[in-house]
Design a protein around this nucleic acid. Sequence first.
DNA 1: CCCCAGTCTGTATATTTATTCCTTTTATTG
DNA 2: CAATAAAAGGAATAAATATACAGACTGGGG
Lengths: 147, 147
Amino acid sequence: MVPKKLRQGKILEVIRKGAVHNQQELLVHLRRAGIHVTQATLSRDIKELGLVKGAEGYREFGPRVYFASEETLRHLLREFLSDTKASGNLVILKTNPGCAQTVAVALDRAGWPELAGTLAGDDTILTVVAEGYRSQDIQQKIQRLIG
Amino acid sequence: MVPKKLRQGKILEVIRKGAVHNQQELLVHLRRAGIHVTQATLSRDIKELGLVKGAEGYREFGPRVYFASEETLRHLLREFLSDTKASGNLVILKTNPGCAQTVAVALDRAGWPELAGTLAGDDTILTVVAEGYRSQDIQQKIQRLIG
DNA sequence: CCCCAGTCTGTATATTTATTCCTTTTATTG
DNA sequence: CAATAAAAGGAATAAATATACAGACTGGGG
């Protein structure tokens, strides 16, 4: 019996690698990896993982987070942050598609005095650094948090 | 006969307002707005609009442009860009209403190293210029691309 | 005007996904 | 170690969604 956690991890791995258009297809992928389950189980896993299905197949869709401890923030950044840049008094954070809003909220809630504010699009967060701080330092602080 | 464009606009409006969990539900909403179509048509509209379905119901998902060669970018800019401004380390691009998101994605995908990131609203794109470049130069580069 | 190709949509149906109802497995507690 | 509760997952099936097909309508050529 393959543990559920492992199976769900594998599901994420599979859908990140390439388009999966239905559960039957996913089932075959998993079978190749030695994981044997029924479509019903996949349906439940997909719901638990919060995956989303569109024309391109299944994808992850940013979670809804309502409180952000430094700990939550760390998790979110680890999970969704793909790049950071400092420029002028701004720090630009790139996230997975659709996740920017969530991560930005977490940043806001974290209440760092170094941040004057954040502005999030679909996959980009613009972080405005407060007077008296340097964007490079904030960028580093974020990277240290992840690392 | 209600025009397709209008119907699809209404669909977006409905799903933005509140959770819609299936096409039958959507169909009822539209009917209340005086738009009468079958489930089959909604299925096709949803695909065209690039909507995505998850546990929370239907949502919009990211861009409709999947790769942007310099050529695609040029087309989009020619078509939709109405004004450019440089300010500090930012370049502000004005587009036709509703087009900013699409153009911004194309810019992102173009992968210019001069751009740290973009953030798009409805008709405005905020482009953050990377450290070591001048926003005036980027503005000119964009204008040359069009001209 | 007629024909053609293209677009749009409804009907009927095939495909895909979610759920109900069980059985099995895995803790938990006295 | 029972006894019992909770979690997990399969089989069957209900529900939801996509599609094949055909008819209606539209805008050019000829």
